[in-house]
């Protein structure tokens, strides 16, 4: 098995490490970097729990070879709030955008990517975009309300998308 030297930033902090060719990004950010906010759900790219931003693009960390992260800027749920929660995070709390919380890191990352690309998404755009982030507590109405509430407010972009 070949190993590869990676250099990337995770939520603004630089990491340099050596990884085996078969490591996936989700394993590296959770196990090597200790950022356990990102969850492993289905492990086949369907459920959205492992959603992360790589150079601002929404991706499944469970499908992404870790070697693809070399030279990239990765943002996980830990990287969203600075001193205060982002308007989106605040809206998730106020609108009941979650129950058990396991899908929430992925929901927040996916919605952050949506608002970064479409600052004022309509009902249909929110549903189309968020369709791939599953919530088994049936919190979809709250999630959509939260995104609507935060839309147009600004301040959603993680630091590396500015």
């Amino acid at each position: 098995m070949s190993t590869h030297r990676l250099s990337f930033t995770l939520n603004g902090t630089k990491h340099e490490l050596e990884v085996a060719a078969d490591r996936l990004l989700i394993e590296v950010i959770r196990d090597d970097c200790g950022a356990t906010g990102t969850k492993l759900g289905c492990a086949v790219g369907v459920c959205g729990a492992c959603s992360v931003l790589v150079d601002g693009e929404l991706l499944s960390a469970c499908l992404l070879p870790a070697v693809f992260a070399d030279g990239r800027r990765i943002t996980t749920v830990e990287g969203l709030a600075k001193n205060d929660l982002t308007p989106l995070q605040d809206a998730f709390i106020r609108e009941g955008g979650f129950q058990c919380g396991i899908c929430t890191p992925g929901q927040l990352i996916a919605a952050t990517a949506l608002l970064s690309e479409q600052p004022r998404p309509d009902h249909e755009a929110i549903r189309t975009w968020m369709m791939g982030n599953l919530c088994r507590c049936t919190g979809y109405y709250g999630i959509e309300r939260a995104i609507q509430k935060a839309s147009g407010v600004g301040g959603q972009s993680p630091p590396n998308r500015l």
């Binding site: 959205g48 959603s51 929404l58 499908l63 992404l64 975009w129 791939g132």
Partner: peptide, 8 residues
């Protein structure tokens, strides 16, 4: 599929 898959 989804935006995530199409991005990769």
């Amino acid at each position: 599929a989804t935006v995530r898959i199409r991005n990769q």
